[in-house]
């Protein structure tokens, strides 16, 4: 059951950093020949975006636990290129969850990818200082 109206964030202009894409590929078993499909996960951790999640969790005294993730592509991301990421964030009460749906498009507006992140919101008790 939705508890709050969806929150629209962005668009954020973000770049696929070639060195970071190569490092991400290395840490996930890839050869770095192309930008990893999961690379946009890096963007979701950007302070400008994740600070909204952090603040919401602090208000509710919960910890976000990654429940599921998806990436769907119309066109591959290209290292060195910039993209616009727009995110819609919505929350549910039962069970407590935060869903972030992101769309990635070129600066010219051509759609490239859709990403969905679902975070389960778990009471902080028992999580120590996790955030």
């Amino acid at each position: 059951m939705p508890s709050d109206p969806p929150l629209a964030l962005g668009p954020f202009r973000l770049r696929v950093d070639p060195a970071r894409a190569a490092a991400y590929a290395r840490e996930t078993g890839g050869d770095g020949a192309s930008v990893p499909l999961a690379y946009p996960a890096i963007w979701l951790a950007e302070p400008s975006l994740f600070s909204v999640v952090r603040d919401l969790c602090a208000q509710r005294d919960v910890v976000p636990v990654h429940e599921s993730q998806s990436f769907s592509y119309d066109a591959p991301l290209v290292a060195g290129e910039s993209y616009d990421l727009s995110v819609t964030m919505s929350s549910e009460e039962t069970p407590p969850r935060l869903t972030m749906v992101g769309t990635v498009a070129t600066p010219q507006g051509e759609p490239c990818a859709r990403i969905e992140t679902i975070l389960r919101l778990v009471p902080r008790a028992g999580f120590g200082s996790a955030s």
């Binding site: 996930t28 078993g29 890839g30 050869d31 990893p36 999961a38 769907s72 592509y73």
Partner: peptide, 21 residues
């Protein structure tokens, strides 16, 4: 993310349109 290299090694002639977990 580690599934991507596995899928590419299996069939590099195919394009991965989506991946989810």
């Amino acid at each position: 993310a580690a599934f991507e290299p596995m899928l590419r090694a299996w069939r590099g002639d195919l394009v991965i349109a989506s991946i989810a977990g």
